[in-house]
Computed example of a mutant assay.
Amino acid sequence: MVAVEALRLILLYVHLVGFALLLGGAVAQLVSGPIRINKAMLWGAVVALLAGVGLSAPLRDGDEPAPAKIVTKLVIALLIFVMVFFSRKRDEVNRGHFLAIVGLTLVNAAVAVFWR
């Protein structure tokens, strides 16, 4: 089971890198000028979503997260991905739309941390 735990930790690391890309790209865009979806945000949304799906696989012996938590995180991650993907080619994104992406990203992280 050491290999399975190593795989889970690698997926968790990749998931966190995706989160950092998404949130870091958003913060950089907020302070740099016109609000747009940058490549870091797009890649972060994709990486976080795919690694999160991998993390939801039953890799542990009875220590899996609750199905409700997995579904909640999946729905939020899909919303983030759709909002980022379909806004990526716009010259400027509505501020409310952009802040919703940031807010949903933070909510998804909060669900991961506080829901036990």
Rank of each mutant, 00 (worst) to 15 (best):
S56H: 07
L50C: 13
V71K: 06
V113D: 02
V111H: 04
A48F: 15
L23N: 07
R60Q: 12
W43D: 08
V75I: 15
M41N: 13
I80G: 03
I80N: 01
L99E: 02
L11H: 04
V53A: 13
L12H: 14
P34K: 12
S32C: 02
V111G: 05
M41W: 10
A109Q: 12
L78F: 12
P67R: 07
A112I: 11
E64Q: 13
E92M: 09
L42Y: 13
M41I: 12
V27P: 03
K39F: 07
D61K: 11
V46R: 15
G96K: 03
L106Y: 00
G44Q: 08
T72A: 15
V53T: 12
D91P: 05
L49S: 13
V2L: 14
G24D: 02
V82Q: 01
D61A: 14
M83H: 10
G96F: 04
M41P: 13
P34L: 10
L22V: 10
F85D: 02
M1E: 10
A20D: 01
A100E: 02
P34F: 08
D91C: 00
V47M: 15
L55A: 05
I70A: 10
A28I: 05
M1V: 08
A45W: 04
I80H: 03
A109L: 14
L78C: 05
A3E: 11
F85V: 06
V47E: 14
N108A: 13
V17E: 00
N38F: 10
A28Q: 05
V71I: 11
V82G: 00
P58R: 08
V53R: 03
N38C: 10
A28G: 01
A40K: 14
T72R: 00
L79D: 09
G24Q: 03
I80L: 06
V113C: 02
A3K: 13
L55G: 11
L99Q: 05
L11F: 12
N38H: 10
P65A: 09
V17G: 01
R116E: 06
V113T: 10
P65Y: 03
E64C: 04
M83D: 11
R60T: 11
E64V: 10
L7K: 11
E64P: 04
F19T: 09
V82L: 11
G33D: 10
V93H: 07
F19G: 13
V75P: 01
I101W: 02
L42Q: 13
G18L: 13
L50D: 02
L104M: 15
I80F: 06
